[in-house]
């Protein structure tokens, strides 16, 4: 059973057009305007970070009439509970999920984030940012090409893992993960996402989401509810 206070938006990791419906719902879910954007899953390269900012500011600002104030934090050491209090929502973008989890663990921001989400803070996770809300990030074990040590993640989704960028070719890998870790998996194609709120997860986007549980693969069309 999901915590009824959760207000999580998890995107399959597609383009700004792919996630437009979910993004719009995200922007409707809070009345303020300040978003803390954390792109640290991406390579630590100044042009890359500035490109990330170009992308998020362009993607989100065109979906609303209100002026959004999006601030980017690129240094895990600067993440703190004091910083979080200044914002109406948190957005963690995609990249390398293992790098992201390690940075969040090493900076202890993972515990601050946990408290924030448990208290009903609005959270948007794109790709890597979505995967870390699951129980275990080994669902994308191919990303661990640098000996990263953490795989246990936030576990907000009743023991489920999250797989993004699904295109129908990753079924074997997902089933292997289920065998190894005995955890069901919420599977999101790039053109879809889920909004977890009031104890349920609603599919929002342009394509179905899936739940892999044991040997079953259950399809959840857009607007349906995944009961976790």
């Amino acid at each position: 059973m999901l915590n009824s206070k959760y207000n999580l938006f998890l995107s399959g990791g597609g383009s700004e057009n792919d996630s437009a419906k979910l993004d719009r719902e995200f922007l409707k879910s809070f009345s303020g305007s300040k978003i803390l954007y954390i792109p640290i899953a991406m390579p630590e390269h100044v042009i890359t970070y500035e490109s990330c900012y170009d992308w998020i500011s362009t993607s989100l600002t065109k979906l609303t009439n209100r002026f959004l104030e999006i601030y980017m934090c690129t240094s895990p050491a600067d993440l703190s509970s004091e910083l979080l209090k200044k914002y109406d929502a948190v957005y963690i973008g995609g990249g390398n999920t293992y790098k992201l989890l390690q940075d969040l663990q090493d900076s202890n921001f993972i515990n601050i984030l946990r408290e924030y989400i448990n208290a009903g803070g609005v959270y948007y996770g794109g790709s890597a940012g979505a995967i870390i809300t699951g129980i275990n990030i080994s669902i994308v074990s191919e990303e661990n090409d640098n000996g990263y040590k953490y795989n246990k993640a936030l576990n907000f989704l009743s023991g489920h893992a999250v797989r993004c960028h699904y295109n129908g070719t990753q079924d074997d890998q997902i089933n292997k993960f289920i065998c190894l870790y005995n955890s069901p998996v919420i599977v999101l194609p790039e053109k879809t996402g889920v909004h977890c709120f009031s104890g349920k997860c609603k599919v929002i986007g342009f394509e179905s989401a899936y739940l892999f549980n044991g040997h079953k693969k259950i399809e959840y069309p857009v607007n349906s509810i995944i009961n976790l």
């Binding site: 995609g94 390398n96 994308v140 640098n146």
Partner: peptide, 8 residues
């Protein structure tokens, strides 16, 4: 997926 790592 975008990969980044410090090799050494």
């Amino acid at each position: 997926m975008d990969h980044f790592e410090i090799i050494k």
